[in-house]
Amino acid sequence: MFVVTVDFVIKPGFVDAFRAEMVNNARASRTDEPGCRRFDVAFSEKDRSLVFLYELYDDAAAFAAHQQTPHFKAFDITTAPWVERKTARTFALADSADLD
């Protein structure tokens, strides 16, 4: 499984609009993309401008397909000016057998 994490810092004045767009993007990803297994959106309780994503895909190809969807492209174009900083990382999920 392919894991993607993203940390966002949102510019003042755009937090509520960004949150709405992000939730819609996550919902569309979970609903419309067969390779997307999980798409969690977390908001900091102490600083409303901080947003964290945890995404789980079947493989890197499924994530690449996600980035080509109309909903992702629209989200990315709409929200890019609202983002002060974005840090994305990818990981390989440990096999559950490795954890036993």
Score class of each variant (00 low, 15 high):
residue 97 A to H: 12
residue 9 V to Y: 02
residue 12 P to L: 03
residue 24 N to A: 15
residue 95 D to H: 12
residue 89 R to M: 12
residue 37 R to K: 12
residue 23 V to T: 10
residue 5 T to M: 15
residue 12 P to D: 08
residue 7 D to F: 04
residue 42 A to C: 11
residue 43 F to W: 11
residue 35 G to T: 09
residue 63 F to P: 06
residue 67 Q to G: 15
residue 44 S to C: 02
residue 57 Y to M: 02
residue 42 A to Y: 13
residue 80 A to P: 08
residue 29 S to K: 07
residue 48 R to H: 06
residue 39 F to W: 07
residue 11 K to I: 00
residue 68 Q to I: 03
residue 24 N to M: 05
residue 86 K to Y: 04
residue 6 V to M: 15
residue 14 F to D: 04
residue 52 F to Q: 14
residue 50 L to Q: 05
residue 15 V to H: 02
residue 69 T to I: 11
residue 39 F to V: 04
residue 17 A to G: 10
residue 83 V to F: 04
residue 29 S to T: 09
residue 18 F to G: 00
residue 28 A to L: 12
residue 48 R to F: 02
residue 61 A to C: 04
residue 69 T to P: 08
residue 87 T to A: 14
residue 1 M to P: 11
residue 81 P to C: 08
residue 81 P to K: 04
residue 20 A to W: 01
residue 70 P to G: 14
residue 90 T to C: 10
residue 40 D to F: 03
residue 43 F to K: 02
residue 1 M to L: 08
residue 87 T to S: 15
residue 98 D to H: 02
residue 95 D to Q: 07
residue 39 F to H: 06
residue 41 V to S: 05
residue 70 P to Y: 13
residue 10 I to G: 07
residue 54 Y to L: 10
residue 27 R to H: 14
residue 28 A to P: 05
residue 90 T to S: 13
residue 49 S to K: 06
residue 90 T to M: 05
residue 83 V to A: 00
residue 37 R to A: 02
residue 11 K to T: 02
residue 6 V to W: 09
residue 74 A to K: 13
